[in-house]
């Protein structure tokens, strides 16, 4: 039976981008305000899940050709490398450095090395969540 889900697909085409933009916002807001890599990763994963709901799991595999297991390991490596880089500078493990820069278009911005660790957490969360959902969803 051919089902008619025009409404779900039309809403998904708009809402997915809103969720992805919100995920980026909450990822970068995570240092001083609520948010961070974990919530950003969960939001990105839920955007991909919404795409899978509307368009089917094979279509999403074609348009997002990412191996999520590799993504998880890259994220773990990034997080561990950021934490271990403090050994090179003779400071305790997990010490984080920051400084203030004058970026164009943003003005005075404080850039932290903890954000790299957060990016690792983001990749791990997206990878693990999508691996679980794909494994469960594909099983007949």
């Amino acid at each position: 039976m051919k089902t008619n889900d025009v409404m779900l697909q039309t809403v998904t085409k708009v809402v997915t981008f809103i969720i992805l933009m919100f995920a980026v916002h909450i990822f970068f807001a995570g240092h001083y305000t609520p948010g961070g890599g974990f919530v950003g990763g969960l939001l990105t994963a839920s955007a991909i899940v919404l795409l899978m709901l509307a368009f089917g799991i094979q279509t999403v595999k074609k348009i997002v050709p990412v191996n999520y297991v590799v993504m998880t390991s890259v994220g773990l490596l990034l997080a561990i490398a950021t934490a271990a880089a403090s050994i090179l500078f003779d400071v305790p493990f997990f010490t984080h450095a920051y400084d203030y820069f004058d970026l164009p278009l943003f003005g005075k911005t404080s850039l932290h090395s903890a954000m790299l660790f957060d990016a690792g957490v983001y990749l791990v969360v997206v990878g693990v969540t999508m691996t679980i959902i794909q494994t469960i969803g594909e099983d007949e």
Partner: peptide, 15 residues
């Protein structure tokens, strides 16, 4: 979607 069709992710969408 689960109530309507009994599955959440359909295997081939253009059935």
């Amino acid at each position: 979607k689960f109530i309507e069709r009994g599955e959440i992710f359909d295997r081939d969408h253009n059935r």
